[in-house]
Structures are given as C-alpha cells and as structure tokens.
Amino acid sequence: MEIKFIVIDDEPPALQVIKTYAQEFPWLKLQHTFTDAVSAAEYLRHSQADLIFLDIHMPDINGLDLARGLTNRPMIIFTTAYKQYAFDGFELEAIDYLLKPIPFQRFEKAVQKAQLHQQQQLLPTATESLLVHSSYHMVKIPLHEIIYIESLEDYIRIHLTKQAPVLTLMTLKKMQEKLPAARFRRIHRSYIVSVDKVRSVINRKVKLSSSAELPVSDSYSDFIRDWKGNS
C-alpha cells in the first residue's frame, strides 16, 4: 500500500536526508519537496498527499501554524532540532516527532507508524484495534478491551478490561467517528460505552462489566430502547 508524501524544510540538506532515507522503503512515494511553507500550502490546496514531513522552524510560516491551517490534514511527521515543540506536535495528533539530526532507525520507526495508521484508516470495518497518542507514544488498543470512554474536556480517558485507562488528547465526538457504530454507543455528552459490556439498564443508568455505573442523558435515551430491544 503506497504512501504519497511531501517534504517541507527550508534547509536543503535536511530535505536530502529524508529523500535518501525514504528510498529504502519502496512503498514511500515522494511527490514534491518544498523549502518554504507558502509554496507547500498552495500545493496542498490543489493536490493530495498522504503524509507530510514538516519542519517546524521556517522563516515564512511556522510548521505548526501550517499544520493547523490545513482543512484536510494528512498524516504529519514533524522534523525539528527543537524539543520544546513536542507537546504542540502531540496536540496536532502527529504520527511522530523526529529530532534532527534524524537517525535512520527513528525514521524507520516513524514511517512504520504512518503505514499502520494508513492501513487502519483505509480499512475501518476490518480493523479490530485503534491507535491513539498517549504520553508521547502511539498506543494500540484492541476494540474488544474497551469498556467505556470518558470525556475530560479536551482529553478522553479510555477504560479497558486488561490494563490501566489510557488518556489521550481527543474529543469524544472524534473518537466516536473512529469506532464501529454497531458496537459503541454514546449515552451521554461525557460517555461512550461498548454495547457488549453493558450488563443492565436501570433508572436511566447503565451498569457495565467493570461494575461502573454511568448515566444516560435525555439526548441519548434511544440507547435504552435499542438495548432492550436487542437483549
């Protein structure tokens, strides 16, 4: 499965490093390189890329600002000499954050993450797991281990059967879009539950396999009817 990518970096030697490393992976297909963010932004308005290697410190537009301004944001791997922007990259759900000078082994790990992410995005009905960013790592979560998902303003906490909860920067709405609708239902503005982990529904509350009890709000009361109808 091909990944079409572009590289944006105002330093030609840095561009060459990415190009050289990428030649070791036949499924990485270079589309274009740019030494300024303005030209890259114009290109992305009319052309598609699956992945961007994006420098952060550039003279015209900061790489973070460029990423934030993209309407249909491709996968992004940030490349920079500055550690202090790691959290910003994490906030933008970057696939990885590579510090210059970039060792080949770290490049390889980053593009493998991109490959796995693309496979999951292109085959949503076949996947039995999802990837999320947590503590600056990509964490793979099997769908069958999810009990429920809790909203904490800008973050969500994923409660699991076999491990500690996983905290990730994402909205509950965006997470809901990633999950198969038949298996996961929203019951409240703050909760999504795994349908097969629901053990009972009493007085507008669901009791889960973990013994947790969660409220069902009026806006999502159709869940109770549907659950009883399928029980």
Rank of each mutant, 00 (worst) to 15 (best):
L28C: 03
A67V: 02
A212H: 07
Y43C: 06
R73T: 12
S211M: 09
Q121I: 12
S209N: 10
F104R: 04
E153G: 04
L169E: 03
E128F: 08
S151C: 10
R106H: 11
I52S: 08
H57R: 10
F223N: 02
F78S: 04
F78K: 03
E153W: 01
R199S: 10
Q84G: 01
A182N: 08
V216H: 00
A182P: 00
T79E: 05
F107K: 01
S217L: 04
P103G: 03
T80D: 11
M175F: 14
D60C: 02
N230S: 08
I102R: 06
I95T: 11
A49H: 12
M170N: 15
I76W: 12
W227A: 01
E177H: 14
Q84D: 14
S190T: 05
F34V: 06
Y148N: 08
K205L: 08
L167D: 06
F90P: 02
S211H: 14
R106V: 01
D55W: 08
Q120M: 14
A40S: 10
R183A: 13
D154C: 02
D154H: 08
F53V: 04
L54R: 14
F104N: 01
Q119V: 02
A37G: 09
S217V: 01
T168Q: 05
Q163P: 06
T79H: 05
A212C: 07
V111G: 08
H188S: 00
A86Y: 04
E150Q: 11
T171Y: 09
A81Q: 06
L92H: 08
R185N: 11
S211I: 02
L179T: 06
P13G: 06
L179Y: 12
K197P: 04
Y82G: 00
L66C: 07
K197W: 02
P142N: 11
K100M: 08
A212Y: 05
P74S: 12
D218C: 00
